[in-house]
């Protein structure tokens, strides 16, 4: 993904201007910034759900269903069971008719495997509305990963998770997406998580929209 001269203006105020960066295959880019700095808006612009006011986003050889997003407000179907929400991640790979009739045993097996990894094995048939916020957040991660994205945009995917599950979730995201030679762009508040899991960090500052910076995590560590 290549971002060129990107500018985002919300209600007459520039959040970001002249943003330029390239996300390489297999890379984990952490987006950092204070609350209200425009991290969520940037991710929504990168996903294509909001049109930027300036600049371009180039996604080479990427189909529309190969870019997934984990939303901050999760956006799950509360009236469906956890397993159905997880399985709905693969709808982009299925035809209308096959998904109308349900999901294959193979797909169910794969979804259950992912749910097990995030500690939701005993919640498979439970209504999503009855899950805790943390469980719902892990379910949203599973749904997005099950769509097998080449670019995963994650908006604070660990905000409601305890330390243990935040670590497990970020490890799974990194391993799963990078295993397919994909890229992760993830907004994170926790500086330790950003340092432990990302290759680079993009800092944005709402007070000075052009004052963004990208830092290499490896060089910071050294």
């Amino acid at each position: 993904m290549r971002v060129k001269n990107l500018g985002i203006c919300v209600e007459g105020k520039w959040l970001i201007r002249n943003l330029n960066f390239t996300v390489r295959q297999g890379e984990f880019l952490a987006v950092r910034g204070s609350s209200g700095s425009g991290k969520t808006t940037l991710l929504r612009v990168l996903s294509g759900s909001i049109t930027p006011d300036e600049g371009t986003i180039e996604k080479e050889n990427l189909n529309s269903n190969e870019c997934a997003m984990i939303f901050q407000d999760l956006q799950l179907a509360d009236g469906a069971t956890a397993i159905t929400n997880a399985l709905s991640g693969c709808l982009g790979r299925n035809s209308f008719l096959s998904s109308f009739l349900g999901f294959t045993a193979q797909e169910k097996k794969q979804a259950i495997k992912l749910l097990n990894l995030l500690g939701l094995s005993d919640k498979l048939n439970q209504w999503t509305s009855t899950l805790s916020r943390g469980e719902r957040q892990r379910l949203a991660i599973v749904r997005s990963l099950f769509s097998r994205p080449r670019i995963l945009l994650a908006d604070e995917p660990t905000s409601s998770l305890d330390e243990k599950w935040a670590k497990v979730s970020l490890e799974l995201i990194k391993k799963d997406v990078e295993g397919r030679n994909g890229s992760v762009i993830c907004s994170l508040h926790d500086s330790h998580q950003a340092r432990d899991f990302s290759n680079r960090e993009l800092f944005i500052d709402s007070n000075s929209p052009e004052n963004w910076s990208i830092q290499d995590v490896e060089s910071k560590k050294s």
């Binding site: 956006q75 982009g92 299925n94 997005s144 769509s147």
Partner: peptide
């Protein structure tokens, strides 16, 4: 929102 999220994951209108 859930419907829009699934559209973003590549589901068609009916799915």
């Amino acid at each position: 929102k859930a419907q829009h999220a699934l559209r973003g994951l590549g589901a068609d209108q009916f799915q």
